[in-house]
Design a binder for these strands. Structure first.
Lengths: 201, 201
DNA sequence: GCGACAACGGTACATTAGTATGGTTGCGTG
DNA sequence: CACGCAACCATACTAATGTACCGTTGTCGC
């Protein structure tokens, strides 16, 4: 949703409402909004709320306090963050004001997915480092070269690239020049890697 | 959290509050709760709310309507994924049944954070590749060696490691052997990188 | 210059809604 | 059996809150 015909002021008001509902758990009152923006008259705020409702961003119930709903459900309630632009290898100016939002809902909101924490550097050349969390989509098959979690006959599992070979065997290829691939004839795909999350600090 | 010492009635009240906050977007009033359970006196509900607050499940602000916060953030569905264990460089058995959950709420649910998409390979040795999303915590200062978004006097911004030097200047160090550090005397820290999200497929 | 509109200030009013006080009932425990 | 406690009713008070009405200012396009 490309934050359409909103004025700058309206956008800021919407952002505040959204932020409070999502992070605090309950929305602001008319006067709270006014305070936040230095608007001294409740009517000044009402004006904005009417605009936001007219433009389809919020929904309200008459005569009920704090009864502001975000029509888009708040972009899946916190699964998104404002996007300030790209940082290039070189240099790029940073967008400060008008922001789209990046939404990771589809990454997390699936019930056939799970997380694996990676230990070790076997996938370092795929830029997956020790401690990273890999999001795995459960599935039985994989395409050539996909990163998969494979289960070996021994019952052990490993995160590797999946390369089926002519002879019916599979090459499980780590992304680390110091490590050798594993060749197995009876490996099972548990799932494929669809995302990586790293969380320092 | 094992829904501890709650009475059946309190549990139901909590469930209602939770459901309304999460699905409707704003919580109930004291009298709304009463209506839902056939409690005709506001005080009957107040009793439950006090109990829930005393037991640490909700938080309230005095004299504010609908000001009920869920202390656990409502266990925001989707912010967590089941954790199946670790995959080692070597091999490790995969946990199939009893799973913890990994929760990324604290990564996303902060209002002073934003996303930058990285283009280029300047931070490739930090295992951040082209297209990755970096979660930035807004702040004005940074410690030695932290990964920061720095703004240069020219107005351009860049993602680099932050190394202040004796002479008052700062070395902005890329994580790529083919690239040279930038030395500036007047760079500003926009924020520090606290997370990375990669989303293929 | 005129009308439309965003974006307010000011004020007033009627609910809405949180809170306090005082009492009742039923259950379980020492 | 007294006591504590959960779970209420009834009522009253007051602050918080949504809303309506009337103006004002500045910008923008025609």
């Amino acid at each position: 949703m490309a934050t359409k015909q909103l004025t700058e002021r309206q956008r800021r008001v919407y952002e505040l409402i959204r932020e409070l509902i999502l992070n605090r758990g309950y929305g602001p009152t008319v006067r709270e909004i006014g305070e936040a923006f230095g608007i001294k008259s409740p009517n000044g705020v009402m004006c904005h709320l009417r605009a936001l409702e007219r433009k389809g961003l919020i929904r309200r119930s008459p005569n009920k306090s704090r009864a502001i709903e975000l029509v888009d459900g708040g972009d899946r309630r916190g699964h998104s963050l404002p996007m300030a632009g790209k940082v290039a290898a070189g240099l790029a100016p940073l967008a400060h004001e008008p922001m789209d939002r990046v939404d990771f809902s589809n990454m997390f909101c699936q019930n056939d997915r799970f997380i694996l924490q990676v230990s070790g550097d076997s996938m370092i050349d795929a830029n997956i480092q020790d401690g990273d969390f890999v999001v795995i989509q459960k599935q039985e098959t994989a395409d050539d070269g996909q990163m998969v979690v494979a289960e070996l006959p021994s019952g052990e599992s490993t995160l590797k690239f999946w390369y089926p070979e002519e002879n019916g065997r599979v090459r499980l290829q780590p992304a680390n020049p110091t490590m050798e691939p594993i060749f197995v004839s009876d490996a099972r795909v548990v799932g494929v890697a669809v995302g990586v999350v790293r969380n320092h600090v």
